[in-house]
Design a protein around this nucleic acid. Structure first.
Lengths: 251, 251
DNA sequence: GAGCTTGGCATAACTATGTTATGACTATCA
DNA sequence: TGATAGTCATAACATAGTTATGCCAAGCTC
């Protein structure tokens, strides 16, 4: 594997394993047995590396979403998409935060802006693709007459706000530790939103059940970054984890 | 004013004015004509300063939300609360990000963890108070029979997910630049959620109109952070202007 | 094949930032 | 008046991003 690729993989791994503060040039380089210079040769600096990681993460994220089956129940598909979305974020919280310019990868990241700070995802084609997956599911639900409206993008934005907000608040520790918030907050929210969009209560219940069953089955599949037990035993100890080696003066 | 207080205010000001990367000890100290040592004397380090800024920001945020009038239309109150919420976040994006452990204030912030990274808000009483404001509005809507459900906290969580997710995505540049997303995404989302919660369509429309008018009126008031852009105006430089604390009179 | 060019990379130095050690100065109090 | 505690400037140290420099191997030209 090329040095560049090894750096990227080490970066993604270190990010989740030791948190964003370990995403520094020296540690990264040490991880692959190279010098910090490689970061500059291949990425122009830490900012470039961050951007590459963000793109890569979005691709993986997009792959995970694209892997959701499309059935003849577009609303169930939409719900399954949401569950997968939340699953990915819960399993890779640091990655998710980085993707949405929401992490603190160290001082360099602040300089990395352009990518990390504000415009981050909205200008990345990889991110747009992610959103597009959602938009299509909404469009199919519209086409099927399950929900009503004239702007699939706007409706997709509502679903996105819902899941994105939930996921971040859940990561921050609101909504309880285990996946409890999913049943108390996210699922009812999705139901309410669908009802508000005009879907039939019975149909919503059916699609919810279908998505739930489908999702329980999908859990057995060996998805790479769909880390262990996101639903059953999701990191009760919280997002971080980590003795945080040798901070400050080591003392 | 005490050195400590001046550091806090300089911190909040620098944060919005120059971004999180300017929130460093030397710049901060220079801002008030002191040495970096003051940061350690008063806050124990940058981490302590961050935590103080987060608490202060939550207090200001809570004040802004508490200043929303309570009328005999609890749903309109709820919507006004949401608009105020979004307004605060849009006017003080860096502050909002910091509050939710969502900013990248430089390498120190990663160390600031404990506060900045994961548990940030969920363990801060100031943050809980914020959420409680929302919960009460939901409870009043339940009591009034406008919406149905047995768990005000869970329902409040849905509203919170909605606004939080919207606000962050809007900051990241999705949903367009001006407040356009508010009318295309956030407002319809709120309507749909209310409908899903059992409110009457006509009643929702009425409350929405009431909230809109009330908010438009409030816009004329000399609220610092009540920036223009929610409906029509662009809020080009909306990043500036800090909210003056302690305007809790209107309650 | 000899020499040149290019790209990858190690070494080491430079800069910025968090942090700490030290000591001076001031206010308060016994 | 002397002691103590708190505040804070100076200066040094550690870490992390970055850059300068040069080595070296792979091609390429002649």
């Amino acid at each position: 594997m090329s040095t560049k690729e090894r750096l990227i993989e080490a970066g993604l791994r270190l990010l989740e394993a030791e948190g964003p503060e370990s995403l520094n040039a020296r540690k990264l380089a040490g991880e692959i047995g190279a010098s910090t210079m490689t970061v500059y040769t291949h990425f122009g600096g830490m900012a470039g590396l961050y951007e590459t990681l963000v793109r890569r993460a979005f691709v993986q994220f997009g792959d995970a979403l694209a892997a959701v089956d499309r059935t003849d129940d577009p609303v169930a598909d939409l719900l399954a998409l949401g569950m997968t979305y939340r699953e990915f974020a819960s399993a890779n919280p640091q990655r998710y935060r980085l993707m949405f310019g929401v992490t603190a990868p160290g001082s360099g990241a602040a300089a990395a802006n352009d990518v990390t700070e504000e415009g981050t995802p909205s200008t990345l084609p990889e991110a747009s693709a992610t959103f597009d997956e959602l938009r299509r599911a909404v469009q199919r639900s519209l086409d099927a007459g399950r929900i009503h409206g004239d702007d699939a993008v706007a409706i997709a934005g509502q679903f996105w706000s819902m899941v994105h907000g939930f996921v971040l608040l859940e990561m921050s520790g609101f909504f309880g530790a285990d996946g409890r918030g999913v049943t108390t907050v996210l699922a009812p929210h999705a139901t309410n939103l669908l009802l508000g969009l005009g879907d039939d209560p019975a149909a919503v219940a059916g699609s919810t059940q279908a998505a739930r069953e489908r999702f329980g089955a999908a859990e057995a599949s060996p998805r790479a970054e769909a880390a262990p037990g996101a639903r059953a035993a999701p990191r009760a100890a919280g997002v971080r984890r980590g003795p945080r080696p040798g901070r400050t003066s080591g003392q």
